[in-house]
Design a binder for these strands. Structure first.
Lengths: 368, 368
DNA sequence: CTGTTAGCGCGTTCAG
DNA sequence: CTGAACGCGCTAACAG
């Protein structure tokens, strides 16, 4: 029923080996022969059997791209960018030549699913794997992932991190493009402090993520630098032992709803905050909604800032002050490294700068 | 170097066939034997060779999900939802049992790349393919796609459309979940008309997309129903032969920038419009920005409406009136159909309702 | 319930 | 430059 290499060979009056050689193109074949073969391919509408080919060659043309949440443009942009470098433009014939099949796998942020996908990719003998976004900070999982990646690399799969810090165990088989989340977080809060803010709420991401931790650390660093850290809350409210900044930090998932609720909570705990920094733009949007629903104006009553500079942030009203991450560029670069089109950064690790984008959602606090 | 099924068999003191049977789970095996085999698998850290398995079984566990633009949450949400139904939750071991590998392929809206991906998926002997979003309306491409899909279906690949109208040639091998774009577009404009708007600008999507056409047709239908269609523009401006509504419609890509520029253009052509309907929410955001940059207020001076009800629309200020599409539900259902967990709709085609969401961005026009 | 026997369709030697 | 033979690792009949 299905047409095989042998059928093509028969029609082109050559041996199967010759057909294979034309198709893979990495072997000298007489022009006239190649012509005949290609005609036969088209005539018969032949499509290479991927599994058979991969089995014989011991490699496949699959490249995996792992993301935490594909519905989030943060990942969509990186993954799409990586795919542009991997999928190849095609030759327009739909015949599919040497292209790789770049495939995006949605882990939902679950380390188990991440491992499962890696195994699936390993099973397919993937040519490369790109892991995007922050990692979960759990020693057992980190170790499991690291071991799995080592085995993949061992089998010839190229591994690239994108927007993800290098493995803590210093696995050198992996090229890593890490975002400067800490620096970005620091500069953002420094900006707020420079405006005159002293009481700044922070809506953090899920507690066990590297991204969350780094951004929060940057925030705290800036506060400390301004001598704000130790400032006590009005004693009598909140946990006695908890510092003011601790009370002003609320963790939650990276979504709008979390930003909304965390902001209400912060406003409840400390009605005198003059600014809210959010872990990312999506969360910031929720924060804005909460601020407005409480009858407060942005930025006159409260400043709000985000992180990532996703496309919609400029359309918030007022436009969101945020930290720009070059998601597309980073994704594309990761894709190129995965394809071997570009060399990994020296030392295997590159830190990608984060740029402060000052817009309308932040302003000096009301006169105290 | 790499451990094979035979190695596992040797260690478990059974035949390769038995190992295969416990791994695939679809054949009776004594509990004690299975136990031994699984232990051997873990001991040896064995990972099934996907290509070999696919070759022998003549099917793979790959499921493709084609999207036009993965950076757009419209597709991200559907694709992510589909993947939840396909990837399976995993058993937490990272060992990867019978799960399918759901992979997202980004076509960039290009029919060539769509074809290429289909070929790649065909080459991999994919178990199923889900095509999401509007199709390009070009007869040659439609025919090519249809032929390719027929061949895929023929080889046992299940095909599901999600948010995409059925093939015009009535290819019955495909299950289609189509959005009621026309009905949604109609109801949206009816809402504007009911508010009292008569001069309504329309920012349409790319001209050759089914989604674009259907939404625009719904819009025109509503105008016609209200007897607005024939209303002439002030003669002397614009193409002599063009009707008023034609002049008020500007096409462009489904992105923010296009919404911005198209809206400026509409405002230039017809400064007296009182409402702008956009082809989708992203475009509507750009339209809002343009309206504001022209010094006009929403909705007092101009009403703006979107389409899709993406998560951020409720956070626009004022919140965006739009048409809600159940993207997640549709994606999940498509995923289930692709997996054979749910039967295709009767006749192979289901139309999914679109719900009008009235929010703050639309209001009656200023007193005329 | 388990072992044995054949291929699945292709890439890659090795000769010519 | 081309053809013939072999085997990649696994599943699917068959037997037992």
């Amino acid at each position: 029923m299905t047409v095989t290499l042998a059928d093509v060979a028969a029609r082109a009056r050559v041996s199967p080996a010759t057909v294979s050689r034309v198709l893979n193109g990495n072997y000298p074949v007489a022009a006239s022969t190649r012509e005949r073969v290609l005609r036969a391919v088209d005539d018969l509408d032949y499509v290479l059997n991927g599994p058979a080919s991969s089995l014989a060659a011991a490699t496949s043309d699959l490249v995996g791209i792992l993301v935490n949440d594909i519905a989030d443009p943060f990942f969509g942009i990186m993954a799409g960018a990586a795919q542009t470098q991997i999928g190849g433009p095609g030759d327009g014939s739909g015949r599919a030549g040497g292209e790789k099949l770049a495939v995006i796998c949605n882990t939902g942020g679950s380390p188990e699913r991440e491992l499962t996908y890696l195994t699936l990719l390993q099973r397919q003998r993937a040519a490369a794997v790109v892991l995007t976004g922050g990692a979960v900070e759990n020693e057992a999982h980190q170790a499991a992932i690291s071991a799995k990646l080592a085995r993949l690399a061992d089998a010839g799969t190229r591994i690239v991190f994108c927007g993800r810090p290098p493995l803590s165990d210093g696995n050198a088989l992996v090229a890593a493009l890490a975002f400067d989340n800490r620096g970005g977080g620091r500069r953002l809060t420094e900006h707020l402090v420079a405006l005159g803010h002293r009481r700044i709420g922070y809506v953090a991401g899920p507690p066990d993520r590297t991204t969350t931790r780094h951004r929060l650390e940057g925030h705290r660093e800036a506060l400390r630098g301004a001598g704000i850290e130790a400032e006590p809350g009005d004693s009598g409210a909140g946990d006695p032992g908890a510092g003011y900044q601790e009370r002003l930090t609320v963790h939650g998932p990276y979504d709008r709803r979390s930003g909304y609720e965390a902001t209400l909570e912060i406003l409840r705990r400390a009605p005198d905050v003059t600014a809210i920094a959010a872990a990312n733009d999506t969360v910031a949007l929720g924060a804005c909604a909460a601020v407005r629903d409480r009858g407060l104006r942005i930025p006159q009553d409260i400043s709000v800032a985000g992180f990532d500079d996703l496309p919609f942030s400029v359309d918030a009203v007022p436009a969101l002050t945020t930290v720009r991450l070059p998601l597309f560029e980073a994704g594309a670069r990761a894709g190129r490294i995965a394809m071997g089109k570009e060399n990994p950064p020296p030392g295997g690790i590159a830190t990608i700068a984060a740029e402060l984008m000052i817009r309308g959602s932040t302003a000096p606090p009301r006169a105290v």
